[in-house]
Design a binder for these strands. Sequence first.
DNA 1: ATTACTTTTCCTGTTT
DNA 2: AAAACAGGAAAAGTAA
Length: 266
Amino acid sequence: MVLQASGVMSIPANMSVDNQLPVSWTTHYNCTDVTSSYMSRLWSQDLHPQNWTKYQVWEWLQQTLDMHQIDATSIPFQNFDLDGRQLCIMSFQDFTRAAGSVGSILFQSLTDLKWNGQYGQTDMFTPGDIKTEIEKLFDIKSSFQPNAILSSPAPSSPDPKRSQVKRHNPRGTHLWEFIRDILLNPERNPGLIKWEDRSEGVFRFLKSEAVAQLWGKKKNNSSMTYEKLSRAMRYYYKREILERVDGRRLVYKFGRNARGWRESEK
DNA sequence: ATTACTTTTCCTGTTT
DNA sequence: AAAACAGGAAAAGTAA
């Protein structure tokens, strides 16, 4: 199942051992004419975005966001789990789909790099524009199919007006949420966990090992046990997701930082 | 090949 | 004695 290090796109050996690669796009400040021409020759070959590894794409992302003072958490990085070849066949629209309004900045950055080997030639993002772009971040809608980019480089837009999902955390299966959701679905809870005090958020494991198995199933880990699950539960005390209930075995209580378990806020 | 954060694994000791 | 509880440590995952 491990696809790591598959030679889908082979990288020249001299590239992987070259220690100056990571800062290639920052070296332009102190290039002399001689090195400049040398660099441009290098650029057209080894350093062209087309030949970036996934890690180099990752670095470019960090650099570019940082350069524009954009919070890295604003965009879904998983949409850029790509190597240079894949990155370079993305259209402007693909960037927009993958990173919302930040996509245009990234697209511009990449375009500059592809044509000039550095930034600044066609700087359409003045400070004023940057501010505008950052402001736009607040109403970014982010719901994409992670595979969409890979499978269709420049598809006709299936949804021109993007989505309306605003929560940046659509996932959310932490252990305590998993436990909570079992409690909240009595019909699908075959006596695994039971409310001890519904309004106080106190509950008790009835079949501790069965719950552990179910948790393991969700995490694709068949060796999960209550012993290990409970260790994770104990870590929640410090974070006040759970409160301690001592003296009563298999009994826990939701804390101030646990959300969505009350009848009212459900 | 990064960081922050959460969970898993293992372990030693204590309590019920 | 058996099952839980307690946490320390560190490895392993995971998302951004």
